[in-house]
Amino acid sequence: MKVTFTLNGKETKAEFAPGETLFHYLRSQEIYSVKNGCELGECGACTALVDNKAQNSCLIMMHTVEGKKIETVENLGSKNNLHHLQQKFLDEGAVQCGYCTPGMILASEALLRENKQPSTEDIRDALAGNLCRCTGYVKPIKAVSHE
């Protein structure tokens, strides 16, 4: 099957098997910021932005991305040119192993695109579906609050 969409700013034509999820497709394209935590929609490690909204890519069937704008952390910043949220996460010590971090950053970015001045409650809500097993949530919330 075939689908056309925008991936990290580039028009992309993808061929995929009917049962393929966006998560698998992204990893197959060497977009390794999306992580496999559960493949059940429970952890948010595979978060991607779909038309500016955070969703779990492991629950998104490839055929549904037709015409959509998909973004991963690779679209926000790079090693030598960090996005301001990436920098904030570093400054606040909101990253330990980093497994949850791309998902947290995308969920935060989606929130900030819709609400430039989110309350702590808004941030907690936006990150509630992104589980972190080492840093916890206090520092990531602080990193987003300081925006």
Binding site: G41, G44, V50, A54, N56, L59, A107, D125, A126, G129
Partner: peptide, 13 residues
């Protein structure tokens, strides 16, 4: 609607 699911990622879908 909010309380039906803790995850905004899931509520978006």
């Amino acid at each position: 609607a909010h309380q039906s699911c803790y995850s905004k990622n899931i509520r978006n879908q």
